[in-house]
């Protein structure tokens, strides 16, 4: 494993590859091709969005975010559960998503954070990004979800599988009534 440092044509090619994957993945969600999106998830996926708390200066590392594997977060789940979420939307009677929301995922600030074992032979990479997700549903209901993502992508043939996705939403009290969309 090496920490990803900038430089070299392999590094740029790998970064480009990761970006293209994230944009394609976001596009599947926005096009509501949910089942195809599920195919991009590794069977041992961890999908985690902590609850964020207002803590005293100096306690952020220790206490600001709830932890994966403990207590209650917004999401701390696996591929099976995400499969259920997709199945639910596709019943046509999941009223929180019926009629379907209009959603655009903006993904930016993409950085390679870690490459294993090397840029020329990357079996697994950790990719940092920012998201801005715009949701509009029915007539007037609009939500903006903004935050940071850290994804672990695993090589899968010519493409990637998402093995781990951590989403840090920049909110404390959730300002939306629901998290009925996928991030």
């Amino acid at each position: 494993m090496i920490a990803a440092t900038v430089g070299g044509p392999e590094w740029f090619a790998l970064k480009h590859d990761a970006e293209e994957f994230l944009y394609m993945e976001a596009d599947l969600l926005d096009q509501r091709r949910f089942r195809e999106w599920l195919d991009l998830l590794a069977d041992d996926l961890v999908y985690f969005m902590p609850v964020r708390r207002n803590v005293k200066f100096g306690q952020h590392d220790e206490k600001e975010n709830t932890r994966q594997g403990e207590g209650i977060s917004w999401f701390d789940e696996d591929k099976w559960t995400l499969g259920k979420r997709v199945e639910q939307i596709l019943t046509g009677v999941h009223y929180a998503e019926e009629p379907l929301s209009r959603v655009t995922h903006m993904v930016s600030n993409v950085r390679l954070l870690q490459v294993t074992p090397s840029p020329t032979d990357p079996a697994e990479i950790v990719v940092g990004s920012r998201f801005l997700v715009y949701q509009n549903r029915v007539e007037y209901e609009t939500n903006m979800f903004v935050g940071r993502r850290t994804d672990t992508l695993r090589r899968h043939g010519e493409s990637w599988l998402i093995a781990r996705r951590e989403m840090i939403l920049e909110q404390n009290v959730l300002l939306a009534k629901n998290l009925s969309i996928l991030f």
Partner: peptide, 14 residues
């Protein structure tokens, strides 16, 4: 609890 309840809960969203 998380998949059932609250804003991300599949039951309570509705």
């Amino acid at each position: 609890y998380m998949r059932y309840s609250g804003p991300a809960g599949m039951t309570e969203q509705d």
